[in-house]
Design a protein around this nucleic acid. Structure first.
Lengths: 401, 401
DNA sequence: CGGAGTTCGTAAGGTTGACTTACAAACATG
DNA sequence: CATGTTTGTAAGTCAACCTTACGAACTCCG
């Protein structure tokens, strides 16, 4: 068949296919992603999506009129009005009066998230000394705090302590509870089962369902570093692909790629603490290997090393930063990360260590050319996991992050 | 407010929210992913999705009746019948007679992908000596091949060579052309602009739109390693998260995470060739650094090294494999990868090198515990990019991969 | 100061798409 | 041969978004 022949035939078939081009699955190969459709989609799913879209728009832009939202989302004013009506009835959106300033036309009625309609509970299990909790509003502002010392409890005792903290948070709340979010150390599956958390002596603990039964509200449980990076994403106005490294008793990370949290095939994504760094041995690790990243970077190890040789403080921190950079460089290169965030004790991380990591990653990747690799401390301090836990709930219940 | 009070109020609100629970955005926090809704969804998008779902079902399961598809997808028989009717009219599905074997009830009419309705063109620009192309059917079977020697051409000459190859493929096709897919070396943005491909002397070349104009049909352009991993995903029945390392003149990789291709913030995901390995120097690289992975692993470098010391062949390959393992270990740990695939000259990769990589990754990660890390050669040989290019077209045009 | 133009929000009716219900066709079984 | 099962289609319902149209409320300008 001639070239022209093939083309004509194709054009004819296109015509025969009628509207199919316009109907093409949106995003089938958008932004380099291939979607493999796996579940049916019904019209009501579209409704849910558009509901979340309206909420999301108000979350990020805030103080918008129905017409503004319509323009921003591409939905018609009529549809937005309908969705907003539904959301107002649920208390998730409130009218906040008319827009001031003089413009032609009927004045716009401004809308905002109904901050007081619900409260969210967040729990952070990642600290070695205490379980910490908070009551937050729908915008992620912390309203109340609670804390229960851990005192070395593990296993069922630790679980009882979580229950205790959850109960206290429920009693501290003054509005209907949208849900409870928990950031836990260890490996957590999508159903909120803590597959393993050695520090707490947990294995295959169905924490989500246990807590859901206890508080009678939706519960989301995820890894603490994953919660942290969600917080950074939502509140730290960080865009695009990024990785958050959380240094504490151990070392873990959360990865946000293309706006999606990476969970990993065995739900262990971000578990970089036991990756071996360098080929020159290193301290023995609790996992049995030598030279794991944790042996270089975990806070207790660093503190012990500095205690032994106070004069070497800067050198110790620089070496720790360099080791972190060596582990991160292949990851930054492979994932084309534009932003690395550190979370943990600022006294250890902020300064020499961060600088050494930044330099090492730059030296060992192409980042020196693209030049825009950012490595910085989190802006959310110690509340990062708490606020991330709240984000998970808001995201799960309202489809908004 | 008391605990009980908060709970009751929440329950009341839940009741007031009516069907909202059932309406919740599906997958808002499913599988550890947070969706940030960004575009509106209309009922016709659902239609497109369900169309693709039916096609996908026939792709993977093949030879099914309408009722089978309905059961598999969760859609009703009526809806499936309607969608199938549309797809038959377009030639994308054909009836292949009745199911044999005796069962109660009306015999089922079997359906299958209309393999002959369209043909797909694939082009592989990753080989250093020639551009290769093929005509494929909708199932990814290669029907015709074409090849144009490259003879060192770069820049506009190389582009003209691509045009030449594309024209030849069009003339070789005997059916309407669904589209043309291209796997190119270098960094390619989602719109098919080759941002940089040093080997071909291309920078900011809008290859997709140029080719679309030339062949008058949809064109998809992506990085060669990304095309390769899509092929492996579609034809190599590889599930879940995986990474494909492509060794040739350079070293690149493609990453498939949670079923999605990773593109990276600057569309440079998988560019691990210029990550530095180890802290002991290494050969100088074209990029200006020393000890880049490419200097250890690129085929020309390996061949030259073996030529210089034929007796050291095994040691050279083992060291190359070890270096690759050192780079991959942090990536495997961070992404919780379960499968690593090598693509390139089997004489170099398959055997000692792969074994050394496998061992090194195991030694340096937690993989020894989970134990199910697979590292293997691709099963698709030299056609991997060609077939991946076809997958991109089928995915983009039909929403099926 | 009043008409024209603009913008906002809502009402009414149309279109799309999947669902439920119902039914004819074609087969196996007792 | 009657009964039960499975397939595929026809008819009508429901959900959700769209287009069109309109009143309300404001600015601008002659």
């Amino acid at each position: 068949m001639s070239e022209a022949g093939a083309r004509d035939t194709a054009a004819e078939v296109d015509a025969a296919r009628g509207r199919q081009a316009a109907r093409r699955v949106p995003g089938a190969f958008v932004a380099g992603r291939v979607l493999r459709p796996s579940t049916k989609v019904l019209p009501e799913h579209a409704r849910g999506h558009n509901r979340a879209l309206v909420l999301q728009t108000l979350f990020t832009a805030g103080q918008q009129s129905r017409a503004d939202v319509a323009r921003r989302t591409g939905l018609t004013r009529v549809t937005v009005s309908d969705l907003v009506g539904e959301l107002i009835a649920e208390g998730l959106i409130v009218e906040t009066g008319q827009r001031d300033g003089s413009r032609p036309g009927k004045p716009a009625t401004l809308l905002d998230i109904g901050r007081t309609a619900f409260q969210v509970l967040g729990i952070d299990l990642s600290d070695h000394s205490a379980f910490r909790g908070a009551v937050l509003d729908l915008t992620g502002t912390i309203l109340e705090r609670a804390e229960v010392p851990l005192a070395g409890r593990v296993g069922d005792d630790a679980l009882a302590t979580v229950f205790e903290l959850a109960d206290e948070l429920v009693s501290l709340s003054t509005r209907p509870i949208l849900g409870l979010g928990v950031g836990s150390p260890g490996v957590v599956d999508p159903d909120g089962v803590v597959l393993e958390a050695p520090n707490l002596g947990w294995a295959d603990l169905p924490l989500r369902s246990l807590l859901a039964e206890r508080v009678g509200r939706p519960v989301v449980v995820a890894n603490d570093a994953n919660a942290a990076i969600l917080a950074e994403h939502s509140f730290g106005n960080a865009e695009g692909d990024m990785m958050l490294v959380k240094v504490g008793h151990g070392v873990g990370a959360g990865l946000l790629l293309g706006g999606s949290l990476l969970s990993g095939g065995r739900f262990a994504a971000g578990e970089i603490g036991h990756v071996v760094v360098g080929t020159d041995g290193g301290e023995e690790c609790s996992c049995g290997k030598s030279g794991c990243l944790e042996t270089w970077l975990a806070a207790p190890r660093l503190e012990a090393r500095i205690r032994r040789a106070p004069g070497q403080r800067e050198a110790i921190l620089r070496e720790a930063g360099r080791r972190l950079g060596i582990v991160l460089a292949p990851i930054v290169g492979a994932l084309d990360l534009s932003e690395l965030i550190l979370s943990g004790p600022p006294a250890l991380l902020d300064g020499t260590l961060a600088e050494a990591t930044r330099e090492t990653v730059r030296e060992r990747t192409m980042a020196e050319f693209s030049g825009d690799l950012v490595l910085r401390m989190t802006t959310l301090g110690d509340d990062i996991v708490l606020r991330g836990a709240a984000v998970m709930v808001i995201s799960a219940e309202l489809g908004v992050s």
